[in-house]
Design a protein around this nucleic acid. Structure first.
Length: 443
DNA sequence: CGGTTACCGCCG
DNA sequence: GGCGGTAACC
């Protein structure tokens, strides 16, 4: 049985688990709504949640059962204009296939990882299936992970959504899936703002007010650097600003070259750069090393020092941990790392999955993430609104400018020349130079 | 160069 | 006190 207005895409849970993937700290912009639990239908599984993401021109809505992904998209404006409904749903389906990278057979990868790695086989291969890497928009990914330092999933999610609400015009206002006619609960949906908007002079102060802390300046400076380096001309035919196109083009260059470019941006260190490489720039072998991954590496793989002393994460240590884990898992190491990482979060107990029996040291961290995930599934209507979030009237679907989404530009042309053979120290020096000169040139 | 320290805000 | 870090400073 297909939910009203949805289309069905056959897809086993082993290939994709929305409940896991959309809450494990890759994207922070999905809205998650619990559905009213219907009477237990005999045998067949029924979706328990609806997931929504606001793109440039539409809101994508997803539900999932044990063997099917249900999707539909909602457009602003009263009547579907030029293109037909089926044409637009075809676009949405194409976006889904790209965003979730459904051409990659995840079951195959799990088999390979289990074969290469006993730890993976024992801890993950059965219990945590369907965890795959999203292919996100690079600019959104960049800004989101600048927010991630000294932070947790729940707060990052709040910050990113507040940023969209504040800096992006509302695309649509929709009733939440569970709201009845008498009690209309609505949500406003805003796309992620483009670089030029975040490069405006008043952004740092405003973001401070929104609770971004020291990250406010990072975001502003990074957006400004990108805009000044690549132009703030308005979108091309694909709806992307020059700076966004440039970021997209990093998909076509080598991992090390792309990393060097990212490291020039303010607020982007090695870990954040690696997250972007892995999650939006197609560098699937890259393993971002944070303290949590470091713990896992020491505990399960004897890599990166002993698990007793708390060693600071030096660049040398980072490289050691990252490269050794990449060696273990191979070509798709970054994807495997995501499974390991997610499996170490106890947050999925609430989805009926059996939790592993962890050691005390790891359990501490699980508690924290568990809480984060619980907050995530709370219906937005009951959440404490961000400081600057205004309550809106319960109107339904407003109009807004409509732009065609493109997740397609993949050419690597027009990239700046990157020096090879520089040491890390040289790169840092150069970055400081660029940052300084950038500030000076601001006038 | 490799190691420290402050940083914004929120939570245990 | 400490967090899924980074920039700035010895």
């Amino acid at each position: 049985m297909i939910p009203t207005g949805f289309r069905a895409l056959p897809l086993p849970l082993a290939q994709l688990s929305l409940a896991a993937v959309l809450q494990c700290g890759q994207s922070f912009r999905w809205y998650i709504y619990p559905l009213l639990s219907n009477a237990p239908t005999s045998g067949i599984s029924v979706p328990t949640h609806e997931y929504r993401l606001c793109l440039r021109d539409r809101v994508v809505c997803l539900r999932q059962s044990s063997d099917t992904l249900f999707y539909r998209s909602v457009f602003p404006g009263a009547t579907p204009s030029s293109r037909s409904l089926s044409e637009r749903e075809a676009e949405t389906l194409a976006w889904i296939k790209g965003y979730f990278q459904l051409d990659v057979d995840l079951a195959d990868l799990y088999d390979q990882w289990a074969e290469r790695d006993p730890v993976f086989e024992r801890n993950c291969s059965q219990r945590f299936s369907g965890i795959r890497m999203l292919r996100q928009d690079p600019f959104e990914n960049l800004i989101s992970f600048i927010c991630s330092s000294n932070n947790n999933i729940a707060r990052i999610t709040k910050m990113v959504k507040a940023l969209c609400q504040h800096y992006s015009p509302r695309l649509a206002t929709l009733a939440t899936p569970t709201s009845s006619d008498s009690i209309a609960v609505t949500e406003t949906y805003h796309p992620f703002p483009p670089p030029s908007v975040l490069a405006a002079p008043d952004v740092p102060a405003a973001l401070r007010m929104l609770g971004f802390g020291y990250r406010a300046e990072f975001i502003h400076k990074t957006a400004k650097m990108l805009v000044e380096a690549h132009g703030f001309g308005k979108p091309d035919e694909g709806g992307l600003e020059p700076a966004e196109k440039w970021l997209h083009a990093l998909r076509g260059v080598s991992t090390s070259e792309a990393r060097e470019e990212l490291l020039k941006l303010m607020g982007v260190g090695r870990k954040v750069a690696d997250c972007i490489l892995l999650m939006s720039l197609d560098k699937r072998e890259v393993i971002p090393v944070d303290t949590h991954v470091h713990q896992i590496a020491m505990k399960y793989y004897g890599v990166g020092g002993s698990s007793k002393g708390k060693t600071a994460m030096s660049p040398k240590l980072y490289d050691e941990v990252s490269s050794k884990l990449t060696a273990i898992w191979g070509d798709y190491a970054g994807w495997a790392h995501s499974v390991l990482f997610t499996s170490d979060l106890k947050s999925f107990a609430s989805y009926g999955l059996p939790s592993p029996s962890p050691s005390p040291s790891v359990r501490t961290k699980k508690t924290r993430h568990s809480k984060a995930a619980v907050e995530l599934v709370t219906p937005p209507a009951t959440q404490t609104p961000p400081v600057a979030k205004r309550k809106r009237k319960a109107t339904v679907i407003e109009e807004a400018e409509s732009v065609v989404i493109t997740e397609t530009s993949k050419d690597a042309s027009a990239l700046p020349v990157v020096d090879e053979g520089l040491s890390m120290a040289d790169r840092v020096k150069r970055r400081r130079r660029i940052r300084t000169s950038s500030v000076v040139s601001v006038r």
